[in-house]
């Protein structure tokens, strides 16, 4: 039987984490929701209570809808690449490729993850450059010059150019997560399946997929919430432009808060981002019914 003192000590151990969570996560979250009902500017401490005005403005603001659409596009493309394609890639690297080539392939796909996002984004501004960019140069070199395009400077292509950079950078990371989880699948399962005459594809569908369900869920949550909080890529590559064509919620929030100096409205946008990611995480947790395994 443990003494009351020892149990009290248990709570003491929790204290640092609780203080940390409280100060850096819970308090700012609550404060932000409070701010979203007021109007104030950077640097001045005066806040005017405006009730739901900021949320009314949010619903009527066409740029919010552009940004939201862009975030949804981001999420869809990211799930396709960073969950489905990365999963297939992981299985390919692990099972199909001979082991030496597999190691090389793994490093090859993982390399971009090690680069700073800022560096990657600046690098891609050179690749996408309209006049001297590598991509347009390549297209011209192979006789597809008519496809050359001001990728980042055109409202129709800017957001897709930005999204593609994120895929290039992140696919290696999720692939590695899948590889780790695949390596934890007991080999007996594959041996038994092979004895029953199951070929590689069948093994993938019947063993690998269900056995890595937990990881697929984790990656799905990471990718989707990442897609709704993405900032660095569009901020550096296009700054949300041309116009507001490649604006996402986070860059628009930044612009409203720090450029337009409307901190109250920016807080409302931050709350919107939080609610969206929270709802999506809860929805996915329920759908996959994981967390208890």
């Amino acid at each position: 039987m443990r003494s009351a003192g020892e149990r009290a000590l248990d709570y003491l151990f929790l204290l640092p984490a609780l203080i940390f969570l409280g100060v850096f996560i819970l308090y700012p979250l609550a404060a932000n929701v409070g701010f979203s009902f007021s109007e104030f500017t950077l640097g001045s401490a005066e806040k005017t209570f405006v009730g739901l005005d900021n949320y009314r403005q949010l619903i009527a603001d066409p740029i919010v809808w552009t940004a939201l659409t862009n975030n949804v596009l981001y999420a869809l493309v990211s799930v396709l690449f960073q969950v489905f394609i990365a999963h297939i890639l992981a299985a390919t690297v692990l099972v199909v490729l001979p082991s030496r080539l597999a190691v090389a392939a793994r490093s090859f796909f993982f390399l971009p993850v090690l680069l700073s996002m800022t560096v990657v984004a600046i690098l891609f501004t050179f690749i996408f450059d309209a006049s001297d960019g590598l991509l347009n140069g390549l297209l011209q070199a192979v006789g597809l010059g008519q496809l050359a395009h001001p990728w980042l400077g055109d409202t129709t292509t800017a957001i897709f150019a930005v999204i593609s950079v994120s895929q290039w950078q992140s696919i290696g990371y999720t692939m590695l997560l899948f590889i780790v989880s695949m390596q934890n699948i007991p080999t007996e399962l594959y041996e038994a399946a092979a004895l029953d005459g199951a070929k590689l594809l069948r093994q993938y569908v019947s063993i690998t997929l269900p056995q890595t369900r937990e990881m697929i869920f984790v990656v799905m949550v990471l990718t989707v919430s990442g897609a709704f909080t993405v900032f660095a890529e569009p901020y550096i590559l296009t700054g949300g432009g041309p116009g507001n064509a490649s604006q996402v919620l986070a860059t628009y929030m930044y612009r409203v808060g720090f450029f337009q100096n409307e901190m109250g409205y920016a807080s409302a946008l931050a709350t919107l981002i939080f609610v969206i990611t929270l709802v999506l995480s809860v929805a996915q947790a329920t759908l996959f019914r994981t967390g208890k395994e």
Partner: peptide, 11 residues
């Protein structure tokens, strides 16, 4: 400069 929206000032 063609498609100025794709061109930075410095460039």
């Amino acid at each position: 400069t063609p498609t100025p929206n794709a061109v930075a000032h410095q460039q």
